[in-house]
Design a protein around this nucleic acid. Structure first.
Lengths: 110, 110
DNA sequence: CAGGATCCTAAAAGATACTG
DNA sequence: CAGTATCTTTTAGGATCCTG
């Protein structure tokens, strides 16, 4: 099936939603390396504000790509982790990188 | 090399720029099938306004992914066509589709 | 530690009407 | 035919300060 407008049912849009938004691919890259706490993610991405990080994570959780667990006690510790669905994004991130490299090479010729 | 913030130098961001913006992947899909005039693109995507189509095309041309030629005479005819660089986006679109399908399958399980 | 609450600005998208 | 010009609305992103 094909579409003549952006639709949430189109697989392309589903995949796009997962990697959309500033910082999204960088957050995902970090999570590809294993579970991370909120602070760990912030340390790795110092210029990313708490608000935007929260937005990205909420979105990923809502899409079923990331899960979050909280340690009991105080202070709280969180652990964000890719779900099986989230791991399916790895080939897409790889392809984004490869395509970008190819474009840099091709465009450098002229 | 890796990055700790979104940078125009990162290959991932280069590739992302090419497919970013509403309707972008749909316009690219059309162009993957061959050269298209402005009107042909509008016919294929009836809900896309002339303004946004112009923005998408200008952006693709500016990135060196699409070229535009105008017929002499009147009325003018345009022909938008993927450049060699633009054709490099095909595997990325395929991967977006495949990943979306995989996500739909995985998320349907639960 | 892990966010939530506000406020603000800028960019993106859409509607409508018009032009070379 | 192939756009441009305006205007309005929506959305995203960032800054700052506050809380369980």
């Amino acid at each position: 099936m094909t579409w003549n407008r952006p639709s949430q049912d189109c697989p392309v849009e589903i995949a796009l939603a997962a990697i959309s938004g500033r910082w999204a691919t960088l957050v995902l890259r970090d999570l590809m390396h294993g579970p991370r706490s909120f602070s760990q993610l912030r340390e790795g991405l110092p210029s990313l504000s708490a608000k935007v990080l929260t937005e990205r994570l909420d979105s990923l959780v809502a899409q079923g790509l990331v899960s979050c667990s909280r340690s009991p006690g105080f202070p709280v510790r969180t652990s964000y982790e890719l779900t099986p669905a989230g791991m399916l994004l790895r080939p897409l991130l790889v392809q984004l990188y490869r395509t970008g490299e190819a474009l840099l090479g091709e465009l450098a010729q002229h």
